[in-house]
Amino acid sequence: MATTNQTLIFLAFFTITSSLCFAFDPSPLQDFCVADLNSQVFVNGFVCKNPTTVTAEDFFLSGFDKPGNTMNLLGSNVTPATIGQMPGLNTLGISFVRIDYAPGGINPPHTHPRASEILVVVEGTLYVGFVTSNLVTSNPNNTFYSKVLHPGDVFVFPQGLVHFQFNYGHSNAVAFAALNSQNPGVAIIANNAFGPKPPISDIVLAKAFQLSKEAVDILQARPWPTN
């Protein structure tokens, strides 16, 4: 009898932990839950608007045919369609971006803490890649996967892993990407390390990046733009 109970407990635990491992944004429990972006109530997501006030505009966004402004330090521009631009995405677990790259432009190494990303190139040539974590027992190192993409090529970046896209061509490049979160978030590695307010101790950064304290001070004094 004890063995049976232990087996049931194990199966219950396995079921719960397995579902958590594959969970992303919460699944919707109704047709839609259009976000009330003006609500002062804090929940995991956004409060629903009254369905009687919902219109087609809540599910609509235009402008993705227009190139973004790449006249910045990165030479790139991300045009998002996330919960902030489309209230109708609330609880649906999806979002979308357009990324424009000037020649030599980069979408710098960054992560999306809440989403995987699948990217398709529609114009130009991109060098893309991502780095694994070091938790694989058979390969404790960080492995780098990269590819040169041309129009029509598709590449996927797993959730939470550091990745980038770089336009090393002589013409503009354009890509579109879908992400499996209404609010995937973005953490740009350089910005997070050298640009937060208040700053991280330069002693900590010097030790972590194996740099001199003076080099860290120079980096912390630089502007760290987002695109």
Score class of each variant (00 low, 15 high):
P26A: 11
Q210M: 01
D58L: 02
K213D: 01
C21S: 14
P28S: 12
H112V: 07
F157C: 05
L205A: 08
P184C: 10
T70E: 03
T82Q: 05
D202P: 14
S62C: 05
M86T: 11
P225V: 13
N134E: 13
G84R: 08
L73P: 00
Q159K: 15
F46H: 13
H112A: 05
F32A: 12
V41I: 15
A35D: 01
D25T: 14
M86D: 02
I188V: 14
K66M: 09
C21I: 14
L219D: 01
A177Q: 05
P225A: 12
A102K: 10
Q30N: 12
D100Y: 04
N227S: 11
D100P: 04
Q6N: 15
I189R: 01
D100M: 08
I106L: 12
V47I: 11
V97P: 00
A187V: 15
T111C: 12
N142R: 14
F96C: 09
L119M: 13
A175Q: 08
V121P: 06
I94P: 00
V131S: 07
G195M: 06
N107F: 08
D25C: 09
L37I: 12
T79N: 09
G185H: 05
V78W: 03
P184A: 09
N141H: 10
G104H: 04
N192I: 06
L135K: 09
V122P: 07
E117M: 03
A208D: 02
A173C: 11
V54G: 05
D58E: 02
L89K: 04
V97A: 09
S133N: 15
T91C: 00
F59M: 01
T91M: 10
F14K: 10
S201E: 13
T15L: 09
N90T: 04
I99Y: 03
N90D: 00
F157H: 07
D25P: 07
I9Q: 11
K207S: 11
L161N: 11
G195Q: 04
Q85K: 15
N72G: 11
F22Q: 14
L126A: 09
T79D: 08
F42I: 15
F96A: 07
V47L: 02
V162Q: 03
T55H: 01
G93W: 00
S138T: 14
S171A: 15
G93K: 03
F60M: 08
F59R: 04
K197T: 15
P140N: 13
T125N: 10
Q30R: 14
V154A: 11
P87G: 09
F10E: 06
G45F: 03
I200D: 04
L73H: 12
F155Q: 03
F59D: 01
N183G: 07
N5G: 09
E57S: 15
F176W: 07
N191P: 01
H170D: 15
A177R: 06
A206P: 02
V54W: 01
S116I: 04
